[in-house]
Amino acid sequence: MLSRILFLAIVFLLQACAAQSQLIKDELETVTKENLKYYLYYPEEYSSSGDKEFGILLFLHGGGESGGELGWIKRNGPPRLLAEGKQFPFLILAPQNPHEKKWWNTHAVMQLLDSVVSSSNVDAKRIYLTGLSRGGSAAWELATQYPDKFAAVAVVCGMAPLPYAHWIEKEMPIWVFHGDKDDVIGVGESDQMVDKLKEMGYNVRYTRYKGVGHNAWDRAYTTDSLYTWFAEQKRIN
Rank of each mutant, 00 (worst) to 15 (best):
L6T: 10
I10G: 08
A16F: 10
A16N: 04
A16E: 07
S21N: 11
K25E: 15
E27R: 10
E27N: 10
L28N: 04
L28H: 12
L28F: 14
E29F: 13
K33F: 09
N35T: 15
N35E: 15
L36S: 11
K37S: 13
Y41A: 09
E44P: 01
E45N: 15
Y46M: 11
Y46D: 11
S47C: 02
S47D: 12
S48W: 00
S48D: 07
G50E: 08
D51C: 06
K52P: 06
F54G: 05
F54V: 04
F54M: 02
G55A: 08
L58I: 01
F59M: 09
G63E: 02
E69N: 11
L70A: 07
G71M: 03
W72P: 03
W72V: 05
I73P: 03
I73G: 00
K74S: 10
N76E: 10
G77K: 03
G77A: 01
P78H: 07
L81E: 14
G85N: 06
Q87L: 07
F88I: 09
P89T: 07
P89G: 08
F90Y: 10
A94H: 00
P98E: 09
K101P: 00
N105R: 12
H107A: 14
Q111M: 13
S115E: 14
S115V: 00
S115W: 03
V117D: 03
V117M: 04
S119M: 04
S119F: 00
S120C: 01
N121Y: 01
V122P: 07
V122F: 05
K125Q: 13
R126Q: 12
I127S: 02
Y128S: 03
Y128L: 12
L132F: 04
L132M: 12
R134M: 14
S137R: 15
S137H: 14
A139K: 04
E141F: 03
T144C: 15
T144N: 06
Q145F: 04
Y146H: 11
D148G: 12
A151R: 02
V153W: 04
G158Q: 00
L162H: 10
L162Q: 10
Y164H: 12
E169S: 15
K170T: 02
E171V: 11
P173W: 01
W175M: 09
V176P: 03
H178F: 09
D183Q: 14
V184N: 15
G186V: 04
G188Y: 11
G188A: 14
E189P: 02
E189M: 11
S190N: 09
M193A: 11
V194G: 06
L197S: 12
K198N: 07
M200S: 01
Y202K: 03
Y202A: 08
V204G: 07
R205W: 04
R205P: 00
R205N: 14
Y209P: 06
Y209C: 00
G211Y: 05
V212R: 12
V212C: 06
N215I: 13
N215K: 13
A216S: 15
D218E: 15
A220P: 02
Y221A: 05
T222L: 13
T223W: 13
S225K: 13
T228R: 09
A231K: 10
E232D: 11
N237H: 12
